[in-house]
Computed example of a mutant assay.
Amino acid sequence: MEIRTMQPADVPLAEKLSDDAFYHAALQSRRDSDPPAGRRSVSRSANWITRTEGFLTTDPDGCFVAYDAEGLAGFATSARREDTLWFLCTFAVRPGLQGQGLGKRLLDAAMAYGADCPHWMLSASDDPKALRRYRLAGFDLHPQLMLHGEVDRSRLVAVDGVREGSAADLDLLDAIDRKVRGAARGRDHTTLAGTGSLLVDVEGGGYAYAADNGPTLLAAIDEETATRLLWECLARTDGEAAMSHVTGANQWALDVGLAARLRIGTEGVLGVRGMAPPAPYIHNGALL
């Protein structure tokens, strides 16, 4: 089995493999309360490829692929920010190859890239083999909740003190992230800008990216600010809303989602090492 650093030509193959692997895992773990499992849309696939190509620019030494006689067998992409935070972006093994040691080899290669970083994060599915691997690698595993459904618009809270953000706010956003998760994002904001509209607290206490179906990321220095931003994100939803990656450290987000009459379910885990789960915070699945 060949393991090497990922190259641009590998990215479309990795996108397809990840879609297959995550869809398979979702079918295996889906509960009645969960949204239906589904494949990526064409636009989401394109965004996945663009995001991963960005990691090859910023973190070429943190991205790995494995090939066997049948083609791409697995991959892992990871990144580090400001030499203080390493995070696992995406990690997948071709369905049918789990439990044979390939995942460990890929994860070990990615973790070596962040070996000198004091803080580590990852967001994972409910796959029991992967969870075992992460725990053995030293991660504390924190279950995530997710809320979904149509927002009850009669229960929306009027929000003041939130404005549209722009590139002029990047220094502020980096300062917030250093306080909440220990490292700035830098160029990752270019990718996040493609996921939704940037919203910023007028007093500089937090920000969020709001998509048509809810927040793709939210970070704030206090729960009051985070709550205002989340209500504004929900007010901008159109159709079915989804609020993912809510850890137990972020009960304020559950309160908002339940007040909006969203349904609650479980969704994977947040893994952290050398740090506590960030709060007030709703992380992005790939950019943490």
Score class of each variant (00 low, 15 high):
187 R>I: 12
137 A>I: 01
152 D>Y: 07
185 R>N: 13
181 R>I: 14
184 A>G: 15
160 D>Q: 15
134 Y>H: 03
138 G>R: 12
157 V>P: 03
178 R>E: 08
178 R>T: 07
142 H>I: 12
184 A>H: 10
139 F>D: 01
133 R>C: 12
186 G>Q: 14
181 R>D: 01
169 D>K: 03
178 R>L: 04
166 S>M: 04
176 I>S: 05
138 G>D: 10
167 A>W: 13
189 H>P: 01
160 D>M: 06
155 R>I: 07
141 L>I: 12
133 R>G: 09
183 A>C: 14
162 V>Q: 05
189 H>K: 07
133 R>A: 13
137 A>V: 01
183 A>M: 12
187 R>N: 11
140 D>K: 08
143 P>Q: 07
135 R>I: 00
148 H>C: 01
152 D>H: 08
187 R>T: 15
170 L>G: 00
160 D>E: 14
186 G>Y: 14
140 D>M: 06
187 R>H: 14
184 A>S: 15
167 A>D: 13
170 L>M: 00
149 G>D: 00
150 E>P: 01
161 G>A: 11
182 G>V: 11
148 H>W: 14
173 L>V: 05
179 K>V: 12
165 G>K: 04
150 E>C: 04
163 R>F: 03
184 A>P: 14
149 G>L: 04
153 R>D: 06
169 D>T: 02
145 L>W: 00
161 G>D: 11
181 R>V: 14
145 L>T: 05
169 D>S: 06
184 A>R: 15
179 K>C: 06
159 V>A: 09
171 D>H: 08
179 K>F: 02
163 R>D: 07
173 L>N: 02
188 D>G: 13
181 R>T: 14
183 A>H: 11
186 G>S: 14
185 R>H: 15
147 L>H: 06
181 R>G: 03
181 R>Q: 14
164 E>H: 10
171 D>C: 03
157 V>T: 09
153 R>V: 05
171 D>G: 00
154 S>M: 06
157 V>F: 04
187 R>W: 14
185 R>K: 15
172 L>Q: 03
140 D>W: 00
184 A>Q: 12
174 D>E: 09
186 G>D: 11
135 R>T: 05
189 H>F: 15
180 V>S: 10
139 F>Y: 13
162 V>N: 03
189 H>L: 08
161 G>N: 10
181 R>L: 13
157 V>L: 09
156 L>V: 12
155 R>P: 02
152 D>V: 02
173 L>H: 01
160 D>F: 05
134 Y>A: 02
134 Y>M: 00
137 A>H: 02
145 L>C: 04
159 V>P: 06
142 H>P: 01
136 L>Q: 06
149 G>T: 01
140 D>V: 09
